Amino acid sequence: MEEKGLMNAKNIQELSLEGQNHLEETIGAAFQILSAMNDELCNPALWSTAAVATQAANGTADASDPSHHMEMGGGALEDARLRYKNAVAALRAVLTEIPNSLKGRPHDTGSAAVALDSKADQAEVERLEQHAADLRKELANKNKYLKLLIDQLRELITDISTWQSPCSV
Rank of each mutant, 00 (worst) to 15 (best):
E2G: 11
L6M: 12
M7S: 12
M7T: 12
A9Y: 11
A9T: 05
K10S: 10
N11M: 03
Q13W: 13
L15K: 03
S16E: 14
L17P: 03
L17R: 04
E18H: 03
H22E: 10
E25I: 03
E25T: 02
E25V: 00
T26G: 13
G28W: 03
G28L: 04
A30V: 07
Q32W: 14
S35Y: 11
S35V: 14
M37L: 14
M37T: 11
M37H: 06
M37V: 13
N38V: 07
E40D: 11
L41I: 08
N43C: 13
P44H: 01
A45T: 08
S48D: 08
T49M: 09
A51T: 13
A51R: 08
V52Q: 11
V52E: 10
V52I: 15
A53P: 02
A56P: 05
A56D: 15
N58K: 14
G59V: 03
T60N: 05
A63G: 09
S64F: 02
H68E: 06
H69C: 01
H69W: 06
H69R: 11
M70S: 06
M70N: 03
E78A: 04
R81L: 07
R83A: 14
K85P: 01
N86G: 04
A87P: 00
A87M: 03
A87H: 00
V88H: 01
V88L: 04
A90V: 00
A90P: 07
A90G: 01
L91M: 01
T96A: 09
T96P: 02
E97Q: 07
I98Q: 00
I98L: 09
P99E: 02
P99G: 05
N100E: 14
N100G: 04
N100K: 15
S101N: 05
L102D: 02
L102Q: 15
K103Y: 12
G104A: 14
H107E: 08
T109L: 15
S111V: 00
S111G: 01
V114K: 10
A115T: 14
K119N: 07
D121K: 12
Q122C: 15
V125Q: 10
V125P: 01
V125S: 10
R127C: 05
E129Y: 06
E129F: 08
Q130W: 12
H131S: 12
H131N: 14
A132I: 04
A132S: 04
A132D: 00
L135E: 07
R136T: 12
R136D: 15
R136G: 09
K137D: 10
E138F: 00
E138H: 11
L139T: 03
L139N: 13
L139M: 12
A140W: 08
A140Q: 09
N141E: 10
K142R: 13
K144G: 04
L146T: 13
L146K: 05
L148Q: 14
L148C: 07
L149P: 00
I150S: 06
D151M: 08
R154L: 12
R154S: 11
R154E: 13
L156D: 04
L156H: 05
I157L: 03
I160W: 08
Q164P: 02
Q164N: 14
Q164C: 12
S165N: 11
P166H: 01
P166G: 03
S168M: 02
V169T: 12
V169L: 12
